[in-house]
Every structure is written in C-alpha cells, then in structure tokens.
Write a protein that binds this DNA or RNA. Sequence first.
RNA 1: GGUCCCAUCGUCUAGCGGCCUAGGACAUCGCCCUCUCACGGCGGUAACGCGAGUUCGAGUCUCGCUGGGAUCACCA
Length: 440
Amino acid sequence: MTNIKVRFAPSPTGYMHIGNTRTALFNWLLAKKLGGKFMLRIDDTDKLRSKEEYELSLRDSLKWLGLVWEEEARQSARFDRYNEVVEQLKKEGRIYACYETAEELEFMRKRLMNKGLPPIYDRSSLKLTAEQIAAYEKEGRKPHYRFKLVDGEIKWNDMVRGEVKYEAKNLSDPIIIREDGSYLYHLPSVIDDHDFGITHIVRGEDHVTNTASQVQMFEALGGSVPTFAHLPLLTGKEGKLSKRLGSLGVRELKAQGVEALAICSFLAKLGTSESIEPFYDLESLAQSLDLSKIGRSQPKFDVEELETFNTKFIHGAPYEYVKGRINADENFWNAVKGNLTYVQDITAWEDICHKEVAPVIEDATFTKQAADLLPPEPWNEETFNAWVNEVKAQTGKKGKDLFHPIRKALTAQENGPELKILMPLIGREKAYKRLNGITA
RNA sequence: GGUCCCAUCGUCUAGCGGCCUAGGACAUCGCCCUCUCACGGCGGUAACGCGAGUUCGAGUCUCGCUGGGAUCACCA
C-alpha cells in the first residue's frame, strides 16, 4: 500500500476566499477519506507579492475551517534543492536558456495570434549559436529558462474528468526560471510533490494544461506521477467568479457569523449530484466524498444560497455542535435555535431573559390582569401552560389575542421561542413588571 | 485564433436508445400542524439551447450551429 498524501499549496499573495477554500477542502477530505496525510505548503516563490500577513491569515482561516495539516513546507526554504534539480535537468537537456525579452515574447505572441496561429513558443533560443549567446551576454542580457517538452501525447486519468489527453506540440515550453533567477511555480511545485511523496492533487480545472506539462516534469524527475483531479471552476451569479468572490473572503464570512462547517458542507456538495445537506463534523463529510459525483460543468456559487443554507444548518444543529461556544444549556438551545440566523444571535434571547426589556403593551387592561394571575415561584416549564389556562378562563381571550399581547409584553418581540421555556428564565419579578408595562 | 471542457426546472443535478406524459434536492408557492417564527407533513408551479442526421423509436448516438468557460504570462 502506498502512503496517501495530499497537499494544499496556497501562495501567500491574498486572503483565503471561496475558491481557495474549495480546493483546500477537497484535498483535505480526500486525505481523510483515503486515510492519508494532509500537508500545507506555502508557495512563496514570488517574493514581491508574498506577504507574511497573508500567510498568517491563510493559516488562521484553514484552522477555523477545521482543515488542519500534519505537515508543512515552504518553497522559499528549498531553493537549494530546486537549483540542484535544475542543474541535473540542464545536463539532460530538459532545461534550456532563452534570451528573448518579455517585450519580444509579447510581440511574437501577438503576431502569431493575428495570423490566426496558436501563440506557442518557437524554441528559437534553442537554435542560438555560441556567438549569438555570447553577444547577448555581452549586451547584458540575462537568460530565463524553459522546460523542454518532448513531443507526443500526454495523458492521465483524471479522477473527475476521466482520461485527459494533450498533444505536447500544442503547448509552449513553460518558463520555469525568470530572468532575475527567481523561480516560477511550475517546477518547484513538481519537485516538492515528488520529494514529499504527494500521491493525489486536487485543483481547479484552470490547471489542466499546467498538468499536461507537469506530467512531463514528474517523468523527468524519474518519479511516479500523482493522481490528478481537476474540479470545474465555480462561477458567480453573473458570470465570473473571481472578482465578486475575491471580496468574499473566509474572514468576512466568519465575521458575519457563517459556520465553518456550513461553508464546508455547502462547498463539498455544490456541483455534485448529491444534495447539499448539513454535516456537523468534517469526518463524516469526508466519508461521504465521492469525486465521481462531481459534474463536469461549472456550478454557480451564490452567497445568498450559502446564507440560506447556513440558517438551515443552525436550525438543525444538535446541542453537541454548539456546546462550549454558548452559555445556554441544551434545553435553551433547542428551544431557541429555530429562531436564530447566526449562533451568536442567541445572546439576544439570553438578554431578554436576564437583562432589561422595555415591554410592548398592546392591551394594558388584559396584560395587567394576566400579571395578577401569575403564580408564585418556583417556575418550571409547566408553569406557562397552567398560568395561560387560568388567564384564558378569567379573561375569555384565546388564540392570537391571548398569546400575542403576552409575548410582546414579556419579550418585546413579535415572535420567538416557545414562551413556556422563556418564562421560567425570565422569572416572576421581571414578568410581573413587564406585564404591567414597566421596563425590567 | 489553436487546444481542452461544458450545455436538462430559478439553482445543483439524475438520465449512459424504449422503464421519461423527464426523477431528486435546494429555492419558491399553497394547504395542514401550531400562541408567533422555525421545524415537520402533504401538494403545486417549473427544464431537455437550435438545426440536421442515424433509428421503428433520441434528453440519451453523430455532425453542424449558437452560447458559456479554461488555457495559450518572466501569476499561481
């Protein structure tokens, strides 16, 4: 048996958002489902754009989501290793120096496009003579490096797309080292996956052509090629995802009060043939994972749907799920949860029970009468029914006329949890005053 | 433009030639339950992008069209 290991490899150039989260989540779930390890890899090869602030935030978000990792690595700490591999591949002729400037490449691409041709690099640097190279060097030009793709068919069996095939000639040799000597993502990623023994890679389908060239890199390193799964990209309500969702960060959702597990449940099932339903622990969500149930078309992500689902998630949440996060006991939670949009809203009901409330009096005569009928304490859940029956008998009120004025006097709210639960918590003193229109 | 992917109710989808007068879930609407809201129960509205072809028969196969998306970066 091979040791299953998957990774999430964000570059710390931004905050955790819905797209990121989905990728991280699927990788994590797959690791759990297969009984493997989950690794966090910080892809910080781009020194200019990488920021510690982002990395810290990414870590926070992952932890909050529950996507904990057992192992981690950082690309900026592994340049020696990358250099070593590059030297070897240069010797093997798989990496070659190029002297075109960015402007020249840009121009070449445009020219090809205008002619209706695919903008594929023509490998002209490979044909440079020693004299030409010397001349460039003298001019002060520094080379950048490309990985040379070998001709032929590249194929792999994708866990969501099935068999995927590419013709190498339709691909450009990827640039792997910049003119300034810094690394681009492609090769380091492969070296890491190879060195750390990554067996499965789940990522967005925007990576499929990268995968094609990376398959050849894995082969060049002499290792086995991991199993790939390319997820269809999420789209937004009106088209593109990134812009609108770029602002939709995990931090914002958290601040809003959206449950981490609601986000995970939602994201894990969106775009699959399974229905989106609440999972109150990641482990069972992982067990339910089935990549073959992911559709091939792009699902629409709508924040409002997430919010609606989150509410449903809370309404169905067992006490165990919130235990430790709230002060209330199981009884109170079960009575109130159906009236909550976010877990934190429970404090509003606690306040109604324990803090001052300015009652809303609809029928002063009636509520005053009801106050006088209040039984002596101790009160329990039976108290309300006994009392309300007595009030009914004495006043002749029933139905909405009976309950509504009482509810509004006691809680100042139009609706809420069952009064029989709330009443003992409010207590006789406050109840008496509130029914008499006194803030208490 | 090249390459690749996609196209069924508002949304996510089932459907792999007859079992489809197209099924489920979410959303929505109505009714019931109920002191309110929520839950729950019952029921309703609602879809195969277009055009050819293959076939006794097409949502299902083929081709074309149209429409989306990805990629073709010295970003990841």
